[in-house]
Amino acid sequence: MNTRLARWTAALVTGALLVVTAHAKDLELLNVSYDPTRELYQEFNAAFAKHWKEKSGQTVTVLQSHGGSGKQARSVIDGLAADVVTLALGYDIDALAQKGRLVPPDWQKRLPHNSSPYTSTIVFVVRKGNPKSIKDWGDLVKPGISVVTPNPKTSGGARWNYLAAWAWAEREFKGDQARVRDYITRLFKNVPVLDTGARGATTTFVQRKIGDVFLSWENEAFLALKEYGADQLEILAPSLSILAEPPVTWVDRNVKRRGTEAVAKAYLEFLYTPEGQNLAARHFFRPRSAEVAAQYKDRFLSLPLVTVDEAFGGWQKAQATHFAEGGTFDVLYRP
């Protein structure tokens, strides 16, 4: 290669590197999440960007993607380049490990509280004045009651709804499986529309005014109340519900490829800081921090909660029994 050509080539390569380096200073993260976390992460992302700028000097922009938790997990497995996932239940992240090998099998041990920085539960939302006198799960199967819940096949929240109903029926019918199954069958006979995600179900109940009772994430219920007014809706606590532990993790394969591992980890760790916990609580997610929880104790309903591990032997078993192809839900639900 002659000298002139070598100079030209060097100049071209140097120019290209300069352009690439200039762009590399700005970071971009994609948080693939489930439906009702939109508002939380909008505020959280701004707080984290400020925190990261102060800490590292880098500008980080966090993009959000929301949808039914199961559907979101499938999108990531199919190639959606999520840096972090903040989904509705552990099984959906397990799927990333098992079907996509995108995260290690022990992903849940990487962050405190089984990688669930906040919790929530399932409550009832009814029309103002509770015109159908709904009080507990047993009322939902009465004829003429219309129940709004998303589809457990696509929505994490719907799976929590289903399991909460199942846990109540187990208690109510003292473990009689036939009666429990009959209850679930009748419950879903009263569901006129199955949305794919929790936010869609909120739209169905609140905006389209369909149904008498909406089985909702606690945070989504309070958000609906805040947005549409206490003169329209009421929140009821059933006699039993379930402790929902929405987990988070970074997607190893994607962050390594994109060079965003450090900032993705920092993003999720920031959820556990007092600032992150406060933001979660302000958006009606139950904080893990005892101190922050004490500050917001009047904000949340008090009701007995079962866990998936106690009542169903963990998410893997619950998924295989109830939501897998040919599982209990497929058998009992006949639209």
Partner: peptide, 10 residues
């Protein structure tokens, strides 16, 4: 009617 409309929307 609302259910039908919503179903169509979905």
């Amino acid at each position: 009617l609302r259910v039908l409309q919503r179903q169509r929307e979905l």
